[in-house]
Design a protein around this nucleic acid. Structure first.
Lengths: 177, 177
DNA sequence: TTGACAGGTTCCATTTTGCAACCATAATTA
DNA sequence: TAATTATGGTTGCAAAATGGAACCTGTCAA
């Protein structure tokens, strides 16, 4: 499978991977969240080559995750900022951080903590059900095929990849309607 | 910066990126979550070459995210399963899926939905404060340096990368104790 | 006028990936 | 019994992505 074909898949993780599945992109986004926005600051703080950084930033701009903001008209200087689509990656950054904090952290402990300003406490974010508010886990959730697959199935437009990925789920749901 | 140096950083996102920052690893983990566990099934369903899949699975085993499980003694056949460390990636998978569903989904709609079995509804998972239970967002959270940085700072052991990343946060907190 | 800085681009070597062929073991079929 | 198939790989080479260093352009500051 070629790289372009991955982004063409129905799966949202595949599409996200086609954007972030490389050495640098997620780290660049992290810098932007931390307020490191200028080309040279990002470049030096990451130790990425200018070449690669130019490339990745352009990709992020193409994907409308980042935009260039003129912060100094006299000098014609730009900084890179997250769009709404980019800012929406906040939960992803948080869950990755938490996984890393738990499993790959060094003995000194967690490097940063999230504070919930409304209650003033360290937040320790966790995923909850938007309906009843209770915490979600692997044990109390199941997967269900959504409209994206149901529609494709109805008009016989499922790709081979889709069939392998979601076929089992579809079969289950057809048996117990 | 070389690839090995990235995993040596204090930042949890950097460490996670050093594991998942490639074309395939996250997609392999997705297959495992979906119950696609055998070498040839993963290989065919992803369109990854055997070569690469061997490589990535071994890396995941090294990182103790995946382990080999003998499922047929007669044939000496193994399947790949997620360890606790691997299963703990569930929130990451969910938040990435949600981001993808919102921003890069095709017009047919969401491919899969998460159902909360306790309340029976589609879950639409969101991050909440473990202390007060209220939803978290970029607007109601702030970052604070944790023990990992405080300790390194105290014994003057912050790397240059750490200083650039967390220096600003540290300064802020020293000013307003 | 010289130097420095921000923000790149160009060129080439190195590393990572993709593709195809091959291999070993065990089971199944002819 | 011999040939074929399935699983789970390994090997070798070409193609693509990445890293490193040098170079370029526009602006300002000394």
């Amino acid at each position: 499978m070629r790289w372009d074909d991955i982004s063409a898949q129905t799966c949202s993780i595949a599409k996200a991977t086609s954007i972030f599945g490389d050495r640098w992109t997620l780290l660049i986004v992290r810098q932007l969240f931390l307020g490191i926005r200028r080309f040279s600051d990002i470049q030096q703080s990451l130790g990425i080559t200018k070449h690669r950084l130019t490339d990745r930033l352009n990709r992020l701009i193409e994907e409308e995750i980042v935009f260039k903001h003129l912060y100094d008209e006299r000098y014609n200087r730009y900084e890179y900022r997250l769009t709404e689509k980019g800012l929406d990656l906040y939960p992803v950054m948080i869950t990755i951080t938490q996984w890393g904090d738990k499993w790959v952290c060094d003995h000194d402990g967690v490097p940063v903590e999230y504070v919930h300003t409304e209650c003033g406490e360290v937040a320790n974010p966790r995923l909850c059900c938007s309906c009843c508010g209770k915490p979600l886990s692997l044990d109390n959730t199941t997967l269900k095929v959504g409209p994206g697959i149901v529609k494709k199935c109805a008009r016989d437009a499922m790709s081979d990849v889709d069939k392998m990925l979601y076929g089992r789920l579809l079969d289950q749901q057809e048996q117990e309607p």
